[in-house]
């Protein structure tokens, strides 16, 4: 075997998950910010800034699920059954939210507030339970004989719940900085006012998770704090500090694309930190990508289609964002 198929697939799935977080994060964030903006026009504008792209963003979630089953069936089986309840709640949240997106614009004035609530609730549930799942994942999954051996409510612990709240903050910041890019005037000013405290809270969350994780997990502490790892990985926390500082600076200046890009970079750094902590395990703490891999015949067969079609989806996505560039205001309707 010339190619390390599990490695190739791990990269594809890591890429897919990151694409999901990067692209769906800000539009979930808009739902999280909705409660603070009760004006109908503001809400219309906010939703219009993501209306053309949000469903393409969720493409990556489905692709991630199917790709995981094809390439790492053991990980798919264990992780998904371990987080049964949070994942189902997340999916139901996404369903509610997706349909609210459509029907809010089709509803009359009497029913619109119901779809607004569905949008808020769906966004919050989807984000929070994604975070809970992530937290539970970092915390580690108990596996016996290739199957989940923990309880139904193992995720109902301080750390996963904290990560769930942390992700709500993260997506809210992504949403507000996205809206700084896409809006102007009073709405933009309010977004800037919200983004600043959110940045501080997110920083606190990052610090808390960075301290909590190695304290809770010996192996992760080993990974980060032994020489020479310490040297290699030091750029990550340093870059986090630098990025956050830049972010706060840029929020003070004339608003532009920078806060959004910097927040994305912050998310990317967090994601890298996670990768460093867990690699090469796909089911922490003990199952590696090679142990969870599907037979090479399965990985190879699927790889052909993935390599043909994923670039196409990327090009189409990029084009979609390109035509959608620029500001959105209340004069530009949904249709």
């Amino acid at each position: 075997m010339g190619i390390d198929l599990p490695l190739v697939w791990a990269v594809i799935i890591l890429f897919g998950v990151m694409m999901y977080v990067v692209m769906d994060g800000f539009d979930l964030g808009i739902g999280l910010l909705y409660p603070f903006f009760t004006d109908r026009t503001d809400r219309d504008v906010m939703m219009n800034t993501v209306a053309p792209v949000w469903d393409g963003n969720e493409t990556w979630l489905v692709l991630g699920g199917a790709g995981l089953l094809a390439a790492f069936p053991l990980a798919y089986a264990v992780v998904l059954s371990a987080f049964y309840l949070p994942l189902i709640l997340m999916l139901l949240g996404l369903i509610f939210r997706g349909v609210a997106f459509e029907f809010r614009f089709k509803a009359d004035d009497v029913h619109r507030h119901l779809w607004d609530k569905a949008f808020i609730g769906g966004s919050l549930a989807a984000t929070f339970f994604q975070g809970v799942t992530l937290g539970g994942y970092i915390q580690g999954i108990e596996v016996v004989d290739r199957a989940y051996a923990g309880g139904a409510f193992d995720w109902l612990a301080p750390f996963p719940l904290f990560v769930g709240a942390g992700l709500v903050v993260t997506y809210a910041l992504l949403g507000s900085t996205w809206l700084i890019v896409k809006t102007q005037g009073a709405l933009q000013a309010r977004m800037i006012a919200i983004a600043r405290p959110l940045t501080w809270i997110l920083l606190a969350v990052i610090v808390a998770i960075s301290v909590w994780t190695p304290l809770a997990r010996e192996d992760i502490a080993q990974r980060w704090f032994t020489w020479p790892h310490l040297l290699w990985f030091a750029p990550v926390p340093l870059l986090v500090a630098l990025t956050a500082w830049q972010l706060l600076q840029r929020l003070r200046r004339a608003p532009d694309v920078a806060p959004f890009v910097l927040t994305l970079f912050l998310v990317f750094l967090g994601y890298s930190g996670l990768g460093i902590s867990l690699w090469p395990n796909i089911v922490p703490p003990g199952i590696t990508i090679w142990e969870a891999a599907a037979p090479p015949q399965s990985m190879g067969f699927t790889l052909v289609g993935a390599l043909l079609i994923i670039p196409l989806i990327l090009m189409y996505t990029a084009w979609g964002y390109y035509v959608f560039r620029g500001k959105v205001d209340e004069t530009q309707g949904y249709h």
Binding site: P73, A77, T302
Partner: peptide, 21 residues
């Protein structure tokens, strides 16, 4: 398939996974 039929997914994912993907 993963949340509710995890033993099946682990057992037969090598066949059903690529087809679903």
């Amino acid at each position: 398939f993963g949340t509710n039929w995890s033993y099946f997914s682990d057992f037969a994912g090598g066949v059903t996974g690529p087809l679903l993907a």
